[in-house]
Design a protein around this nucleic acid. Sequence first.
DNA 1: AACTGAGACAACCGCGTTGTT
DNA 2: GAACAACGCGGTTGTCTCAGT
Length: 260
Amino acid sequence: MVRAPCCDKMGLKKGPWTREEDQILVSYINKHGHGNWRALPKQAGLLRCGKSCRLRWINYLRPDIKRGNFTAEEEETIIKLHDMLGSRWSAIAAKLPGRTDNEIKNVWHTHLKKRLQKTNDQAHQAILNSGSKTRGSINNNKASIKRSVSNSSTLTSQSEATSFITSSSTSSDCGQSVKVDIKREDIDSSSLDESYWLPQIDESFWTEAAMEDDNNSSSTINNIQNNDGIFPVYHQYPFDDGMDFWYDVFRSGDFPELTF
DNA sequence: AACTGAGACAACCGCGTTGTT
DNA sequence: GAACAACGCGGTTGTCTCAGT
């Protein structure tokens, strides 16, 4: 593997960009485009490495960047997509026009993750407070249990969570559906078998869900039904850019780690 | 007013992937 | 197929701001 030489070894500037540098970069790209990031700074007269120029342009200077706070809808989308894809920020960003992967990543780490964690803790506490949880009382919640696709080993942020309970109540400012993860071992696991905890999903679910979404590019909610209730599952198809891969995977159903 | 800690966000770093020679 | 160059991504760090003391 060959790596580009580090900026500071070449006497290039690091740190925050000045207004003058921004102007130089913007005017150069507007005039010439950015065909070759590595050559760009030299040609534009910037003492920056190409990597830095690219990052500055993509994350800050691009004309189609949407500035300002994230809307509730955007946050909800991020949460859903993170649930599905894990930390594939660029893929998530592809579904949010005007937002960058860096920005989404920051929002996740500073806002959304904490908010979800708080909700998780509250839900967990509620269960603990309810005393020795009977099988029956858990059963009442089963209608809102979903098994997240993020059980995939690549989605490390949820790697320890083996099951999820959704709480449609609360996330403070936007009232979105919030995923609450509760470790399976926290709840009398000895007598629970897989069929008790997990919704039974017909093999045809994945293909049907994907086909259904072919007719609807916006966010949809599909319901999985089993003997005990209906389980909402979110989908965002079709994907563009890198999302196409996941779309194909889900569509084909050829994803052993997601098999129920 | 000065200090401090937390939060927010911009930027950097290292590595994997892809394209070219 | 190997070597190299460039790009793109995700994790991490640095810096700034602001509220609390």
